[in-house]
Amino acid sequence: MPRRTATLLASTLLLIALLCAGVLIKVPYAEMSPGPTVNTLGKHDGEPVLNIKDEPGKKNEPKQYGTSGHLNMTTVRVTGSEYRMNLVEALSGWLRGERAIVPHATLYPDDKSAEEVDQENAEEFTASQESAKVAALKELHKPVGSHVIVGAVTKGKPAQGKLRPGDVITAVDGKPVGRPESVGQVVTQRKPGEDVTFTVVPVKKAKAAQKKGKEPTELDGRKVTVRTTEDEQDGRAVVGIQPALGHTFPFEIDIKLADVGGPSAGLMFALGIVDKLTPQKLTGGQFVAGTGTIDDDGKVGEIGGIQMKTVAAREKGARYFLTPAGNCPSAAKNKPDGLTLVKTSTMHEAMTSLKKIREGHPEQLTECKPAKG
């Protein structure tokens, strides 16, 4: 056999062997890619994403207006917790700019089960919906009530089975609580092993009152005694709950979007709510997408997977993308052609940018710029 033929054959066999090894070798990485993008002003799976309503027959039914254009929230698709990527897939993903290969533990920490990760994502999504409602109504100068709730109950701690997420806490050891941090301040005055008494309005009863636009009060509550235990880190008395701030709205705002987790849709939900409750069509018929967490005061926070989200938005037809200020340098580094990245730090800033878009002044927008150097 000629030397050149033998060399070519050996090289081909080596390449085949390497490819086979690459398919068989599993690597500790996961893939993030562009996910679905949904118009918060429209429907998803036949149901309105935003459904604003009041109790039948009430005189203060919120007036709603027609909308136009798009205010799309964006998502990132990730490989499942049980999926183990092979070396060829990882190398392919690294070479494709619209995808990201990240350590598996980034998405699924070793100290948490897949169920725990899913639960955290669901809780973050629920919390983002609440903050979106608050931020939107504050932007519209509508009243929002607040109260302390059980945000989460730690598995295996004394509060499990006695307190439930969503229960409204009106007092601890007879002392009224107005802020989430007040709960811990009272509990830690006890010694580990001592009882602490919570006055709570059960979650079902609290929701029934809130649907009527009423604040749950101590008169609706019941007393629940929980024995404290010692915190593993600092030895303080704890019961195993995470207090949070809940709200009562002047009317019901229902956000329906299945199979989505995390807090990154907050900004777009808030803008969608405002659009439905104001006569001015926010986008002026333009296709606007975006992302970003939002807090009760309308501050927009950065998110993960920004490059996948801009790709998804542009592929769907978006011309403008509301981008959290903290994500701007990364987003601008690989900006899809034809997409204007609008720097956004607050709800009010987003409203101002939308005004410039609908009035035909895109040159006045504050665009994202790549990091210097």
Rank of each mutant, 00 (worst) to 15 (best):
T293K: 06
A244F: 06
L271T: 08
D259P: 01
V201T: 08
V239W: 01
G292A: 07
D220R: 04
I303T: 06
K205E: 15
V200M: 07
T217S: 14
A206I: 07
V260S: 01
P263V: 11
L219N: 11
P279Y: 07
T225R: 15
G304T: 09
G235K: 14
V201E: 10
F249G: 01
L271E: 02
T283D: 00
G292Q: 04
D234E: 10
I303F: 04
A237H: 08
E302D: 11
P279E: 05
D296P: 00
G221R: 10
S264N: 04
P279G: 04
Q233R: 15
G301E: 04
T293C: 05
I255E: 00
T229N: 00
V239S: 02
T278V: 06
G301H: 10
G285N: 13
V238Q: 09
E230I: 00
F198S: 12
Q233C: 01
Q280H: 10
K276F: 04
K223E: 15
D234L: 14
K281H: 13
P263I: 12
T229Q: 07
V239E: 03
D295T: 09
D220W: 02
I273Q: 02
L271M: 06
I303S: 03
T291P: 01
G240D: 11
D259G: 11
Q233Y: 10
G284N: 07
A265L: 12
L271G: 02
D259F: 14
I306W: 05
K281E: 05
A208W: 11
Q210K: 14
A289T: 02
D220K: 02
G261K: 08
E232I: 07
Q210E: 15
A270F: 13
D220S: 01
G290R: 07
D259S: 15
D220N: 14
L219S: 13
L267D: 00
F249W: 03
M268G: 03
R236K: 15
A209W: 05
I294P: 09
G246E: 12
K211H: 11
G262M: 09
P216A: 04
G298D: 08
L267W: 08
D295N: 15
V224D: 13
K281W: 03
G246P: 10
E302G: 14
V203D: 11
F198V: 08
P202C: 08
G304E: 01
L267A: 01
G262A: 05
D259C: 11
T278D: 01
G284V: 08
E218P: 05
G266D: 07
G266H: 08
G221S: 10
T283M: 02
F287K: 14
T197C: 02
D231H: 15
Q242N: 07
G304W: 15
L277T: 12
Q233V: 12
G305F: 13
P279W: 12
A206G: 09
F251A: 11
I241P: 08
G266L: 06
F251E: 06
V200H: 10
L245H: 01
E252H: 12
T197N: 10
L277G: 08
L282P: 13
F251K: 13
A209C: 01
A208V: 07
D254G: 04
V300M: 04
A237E: 10
F198D: 14
T248G: 12
D275R: 15
V224M: 06
T197F: 03
V300D: 00
Q286M: 08
G240M: 12
V226R: 05
T225V: 12
F287L: 03
M268T: 05
V274K: 02
G301Q: 04
G284Y: 15
P216N: 06
G261N: 02
T248W: 04
D259L: 15
